[in-house]
Design a binder for these strands. Structure first.
Lengths: 237, 237
DNA sequence: AGATCTATTATTTTCGCAAATTCCTTGCCG
DNA sequence: CGGCAAGGAATTTGCGAAAATAATAGATCT
């Protein structure tokens, strides 16, 4: 049905399992599949055009990443969202990423700095390219991706596979909440965000670990407050 | 073939998928399936007496937990081990668990203290029950489980699902290295370990967070050194 | 001999169907 | 009228066959 692209970058082969895993993950993170929605295998089968096996495999992985809940013999549901869960994800993310950031600042070489500056530039361009009104699908997706790449670049030189793995999972978990608020970002907020990221990058390349970690904490905390405010309005209780 | 017990505790139904996931995980952590060993589906099918579907599902979950590596269309292998990976797991575990421990000490109630004291007692009993010579299978497994339960109890009241989840995964990752050394524990080392755990528990119930975290760091670092020493002798380069 | 193409084999991945289990409805009895 | 059991529908789970892909061996050509 929508099996258009079969492999992505020429290297890794793309099995149906991997494809449906990524599609499902995107649809959960972007909110297309709402929290607590039961994921019936029949529906998913027709929706993604694959059989049971790849679906179950994808759902198992998603369960390990806490994006879906599973009860044996009763199927899968989209993991619920709440403000408490959001703050738990954000706080844990701060614990992980501030430590990773310190290590990256300590160990990062020229190549790390270059990647970071490039990611910052790409993000900044995308911020300025946005129209004034509310944002729509292709733009939010591009912004989301560049934002993610910036924060990944920031800690990429930390030297710990475990920290990078945890950071990635927490990014997905927090991205779910971010998606709601991204559409309503007013130009002023965008400039603030751009400035926050730039200050963060500058502290990192200046090798000022304390300042960088402080800015990162402030950045995530502020984003958390915005998301919490928006989340309250869109939900019942 | 070995589908003897179908559900364990009366509550959660035990699907074959879950069963083979736990069996596979145990065999990887305990070293029965050696690092880098290719996990051929045919072999596993006869070994665990299940079909393709539960196996693939289990392997997918194990991949998310970094116990197996997977390359598309080329199958699964047991995740490799190295001293660098061991220290990465230990250091990350310390980051996670010291933070979790501080929160548990801050928020833990009487019930938490009771569970902790009980876990310490069970662990201590098992340490003293051990024979003097080298340890064999049923004893190491019991010791492993009680040790794991003690450290789980320590942080159980931290209030963060993410921290508990990460701690669990890192426990599995480090347990792989611990298994090699457990058989060769001499009585003197056992008494030291028992004392370390007791001091840790006492600091926790005394709500002395700094001291408890210091002891935890010391405990894991010391264990790491032991494991690194043993690991070097058992491997080539 | 070395390299390249082709045929064969081994292995993974996917699908369809059957079995097991849960959920929902309906009818029965107290 | 309410609780409960039985039957049927819906759903998950598991197995083996079939399709797709990688690895291997053999043959042909330069």
């Amino acid at each position: 049905m929508l099996t258009a692209h079969c492999n992505r970058d020429g290297f890794g082969a793309m099995t149906l399992s991997e494809q449906v895993y990524q599609d499902l993950r995107r649809d959960i993170v972007s909110g297309v599949l709402e929290p607590r929605l039961p994921l019936r295998l029949d529906r998913l089968k027709t929706r993604y055009g694959v059989g049971f096996s790849p679906l179950r495999e994808a759902l198992s992985r998603l369960q390990s990443e806490r994006l879906v809940d599973a009860v044996a013999l009763r199927g899968f549901t989209v993991a619920p969202m709440s403000i408490d869960k959001m703050w738990d994800a954000i706080n844990t993310r701060l614990l992980i990423e501030t430590d990773a950031l310190r290590r990256a600042i300590d160990k990062g070489d020229d190549r790390w700095e270059a990647t970071l500056v490039a990611a910052m530039h790409a993000l900044s361009l995308q911020y300025r390219r946005l129209p004034d009104g509310p944002l729509k699908e292709p733009q939010t997706e591009a912004l989301r991706q560049r934002h993610q790449e910036f924060h990944a670049a920031l800690i990429s030189a930390c030297g710990s596979d475990w920290l990078l793995d945890f950071a990635e999972k927490l990014t997905l978990a927090t991205e779910r909440y971010r998606h709601t608020t991204m559409h309503r970002l007013i130009p002023e907020q965008r400039r603030d965000l751009d400035a926050e990221h730039r200050a963060l990058m500058e502290a990192a390349v200046a090798r000022d670990a304390d300042r960088a970690c402080g800015l990162l904490t402030e950045h995530y905390t502020l984003t958390g407050r915005h998301m919490a405010a928006q989340f309250g309005t869109g939900q019942a209780g």
